[in-house]
Design a protein around this nucleic acid. Structure first.
Lengths: 335, 335
DNA sequence: TAGGATGATGGGAGCGGTTCCACACCGCGA
DNA sequence: TCGCGGTGTGGAACCGCTCCCATCATCCTA
């Protein structure tokens, strides 16, 4: 049975209120008394019960993080950022993972109902209006990372710019027939990054006065295998693309495999640009767009903590920049 | 201000005790009363406060998970398994990440002191004896995943067998000069899997009557780059290995890069076996050892939940099997 | 019809903290 | 010497729930 504040008080010969005051370092405690209490606390290895503290203060010292598939490296990286920012703040990180569509809704209810957490971070998922309504009306601070909602604060990464950089790079190399491999347009989670990246590609093309051929755009589940099949389809086309922008490195790897499967070469026959800069990207020499994933998680968490401390809703709409990493999968088109 | 049990009781015209009984579906409640209470609960969208519940029951409904680097895909995969097993159990998952050595100790203290969690899962880290002592004497159920301690229950994967399978595969192909690329022997986290895998390699070699050349063993940080340098060193040797077993796929990728950097070919000049079967392994055709990572997390969490329910310590020492996935990076040695 | 067994219920106590109020004690000036 | 304000302090009340005990209604049996 763990030590309670009462035993500390007895042992130190003071009242429970005084111990509490020491714990919350309230100013009105005699230095000598404080010293004595602190000694007893150390001696007994006393740690106040979070549950009791929460009950009387109405705060839980938990921050909830709702994430989609932990299989996505980008999600994990953001989660790491959140964890790093939370660590040392006194807040614990409670992870709610919405791996499947059915779990999505339950996770939102679990996380936002009752008094489970003091604040909520939602990564890469767009909450429904009713969820937003419930959460905000419950006074629960909420921040989105890599997601958009007109009523909510967010930290996002400049996906449009990322797509633009990728396409512009190919254009500058001299490519004209540029394709795009993206995520399916409408997912139950409302992932939007792929769409935004595509938007960036289009805008770069438009700026360069190069028409975008809709036949060179293909979407599907963001797996290596699906991407490979999509790209095989594109390349079998009469007017095949000479350059491809992919919405993720995983898909870019699939694209590379497709090119090779057709007996073609990267970058001589087809240039490929990925997105994410995952570890193997460097290994295979993939030209890609790097995003500050870790930082986005950290920034979101930091802003949320401020809001929780102030008891207000976070105010931030920040867009972090991306960076093009040129490696070996892009080159001027032959012929 | 959220609804409390008192308001539900008033509105339903019953006592608080009765509402509590309904919530915990205790048998002794008249069906009609229960019905009425449930209606009011739904009507008011009432959710009992976890903090209050915890305080009076002495349970927090939190399970703590201590993990090392979330950058390791294997750790994330196990975490997914834990999360899946916890989901729907009513328990929330609190993640403590020990990214750095300094944080390691603090994380253990945070997680085990006070009444923060009802049970603890430690992934891939070996707790110190004093930590074990403190946690168990506090009556906190604890289970290790991918780690060993003589006093603690565990779920591990058969690393020795994995190493053995990998080496045996190379031996059967006719290799005799077999090397090993592993993790540094002593890390602050006490990672042991690399060592066990090496042990398996040795035992397979011994069983086949093939001597193991200590010059063909190299260890270093488990990154692609470090592995590449190590392998370049090995291959520059007078009597270079024809086959390599690597303690992780990441290292195997580094090894492949090294082989190529030296103008040699995989598998014609050097056969390579990885470990983990991460996503890109299939992509690059890496022969590797697949382990039930997700399952190990799930099994550990399930056993812990049972123990928490029974109020006892978990009793399990389970070793899960591995599987060799033969792809394109292994072949009989030339010459 | 009285008495006992049984089942359903109300409500007090307690979980371990925080907060607030009352009070003891101090030094001060009148 | 007395009264005053300020400072530290002890302890009651409370946070929202569970648990347990006492109470009461009901039904069965002698």
């Amino acid at each position: 049975m763990p030590i309670t504040i009462r035993e500390v008080a007895e042992r130190a010969g003071v009242g429970r209120g005084t111990v509490s005051r020491v714990l919350n370092d309230s100013p009105k405690v005699d230095p000598r008394t404080r010293q004595r209490v602190l000694e007893v606390i150390r001696e007994l290895d006393f740690v106040p019960s979070p549950a009791a503290r929460h009950l009387s203060m109405g705060r839980t010292m938990n921050i909830g993080v709702i994430v989609p598939f932990l299989t996505r490296p980008s999600v994990v990286e953001r989660l790491r950022g959140v964890e790093a920012a939370l660590s040392g703040s006194g807040y614990d990180m409670v992870v709610y993972s919405a791996e499947t569509v059915e779990r999505r809704d339950r996770v939102f209810r679990d996380a936002s109902r009752g008094h489970r957490v003091d604040g909520l971070i939602v990564v890469s998922i767009r909450p429904h209006d009713v969820e937003v309504e419930r959460i905000t009306s419950a006074g629960l601070p909420l921040i989105l990372i890599d997601a958009y909602h007109r009523l909510l604060p967010r930290v996002v990464i400049d996906d449009v710019q990322g797509g633009r950089l990728a396409a512009r790079h190919l254009l500058e190399l001299g490519h004209r027939r540029i394709g795009f491999i993206g995520d399916v347009p409408r997912t139950p989670f409302h992932f939007v990054s792929s769409r935004l990246r595509f938007q960036g590609v289009r805008s770069a093309m438009a700026a360069a006065g190069v028409p975008m051929d809709p036949d060179l755009v293909a979407t599907g589940a963001p797996s290596l295998e699906v991407a490979r099949e999509l790209v095989i389809g594109l390349l079998s086309n009469a007017a095949a693309p000479t350059g491809l922008v992919c919405a993720s490195d995983t898909q870019a790897l699939g694209a590379m495999e497709a090119v090779r499967a057709l007996g073609l070469r990267v970058p001589e026959d087809v240039s490929i640009v990925g997105y994410d800069d995952i570890e193997v990207a460097g290994y295979v020499g993939l030209t890609t767009v790097r995003q500050p994933l870790f930082e986005s998680g950290g920034l979101g968490a930091a802003r949320l903590l401020e809001a929780v401390a102030r008891g207000s809703i976070p105010v931030i709409r920040e867009t972090l920049p991306v960076e093009l990493i040129v490696r070996a999968t892009t080159a001027p088109p032959e012929a």
